[in-house]
Nucleic acid binder design. Structure first.
Lengths: 145, 145
DNA sequence: ATTTAAATTGAAAACCGTTTTCAACTAGGG
DNA sequence: CCCTAGTTGAAAACGGTTTTCAATTTAAAT
């Protein structure tokens, strides 16, 4: 899914909901896609401030919420108390490795784990809607030799 | 690990740290162990209020934090915005199934999943310190026939 | 182009769970 | 008992998130 496609999807969502295209949303979406994922509202707001000092925090917040509603982004919580957003790119589904020292976040995918999750859920009579798997630890660079 | 054992562990922690045994902590620990796990501070506070209306929210909060520090409880976040605590019973480690309809929380354990997590981590050069696996969906009773 | 209704914006205030402050009050060793 | 350090409850502070509101902008209908 290219960035252009993501943008088009978002525009289509706005149209379908009777919402408006604004300069702010354009700019915020640009920066969001450019910046790479797992940004907090605060981080995105600060990045935007550099070139667009008039954009308010509330607008960034509302834009991110809208991105999530439209399906082009997802909200995550990694336990540092603030929400983070990631673009729903090609990587349809994945889980995360989080470095507790430097904060780096890696993504991974393992169908075998998913399979076992389904098994566990079935064993308990659950129908899974979504899951969350996060591995916290030290990344290659932060690990003591 | 019996409740008596848990209580003894907590007392030992207090002693070791030069902290004090108080009526409030006694009562809060009692109710915490009696109530079953995954309670929020608010929930525990409300339960306590019935028999002990003078105990303040802050005291409950501090007691739970202390339980976690002492190792007899663990703090969890299931995405509803509030912290929950569970007693660290015999079940040393486990993950959770959370019903998105009724809020029921089941625990499970699967060494095969753990094993695969280790594999994934190793593949990325990570040293895992802890992980979090939560499966969200509908439980047996909430699932439409 | 102009008008107009509805959506959007930025700043500030409200929110909400959590944590801290502070003066009054205990626990428990000496 | 005293005395000191720890604890308590109420209320205030906190920090991230969300809402309010008057002013502004979008875009559909003239």
């Amino acid at each position: 899914m290219s960035k252009g496609k993501t943008r088009a999807d978002f525009m289509e969502y706005l149209r379908a909901k009777g919402l408006k295209t604004t300069q702010q949303r354009d700019v915020i979406l640009d920066e969001f896609l450019r910046a790479g994922s797992h940004l907090s509202t605060e981080e995105l707001y600060l990045r935007l401030r550099r070139k667009h000092p008039s954009i308010g925090y509330a607008t960034v917040h509302r834009a991110l919420k809208l991105f999530a509603e439209s399906g082009i982004a997802e909200q995550r919580h990694f336990g540092d108390g603030q929400a983070r957003y990631e673009a729903t790119g090609q990587n349809e589904h994945h889980d995360h490795l989080i470095c507790t020292a430097c904060g780096r976040i890696l993504e991974f995918e393992d169908p075998r784990i998913e399979q076992l999750q389904d098994e566990v859920a079935a064993r308990h009579g659950f129908t899974i809607e979504r899951h969350r798997l996060e591995l916290y630890g030290l990344c290659k660079d932060c690990r003591p030799a």
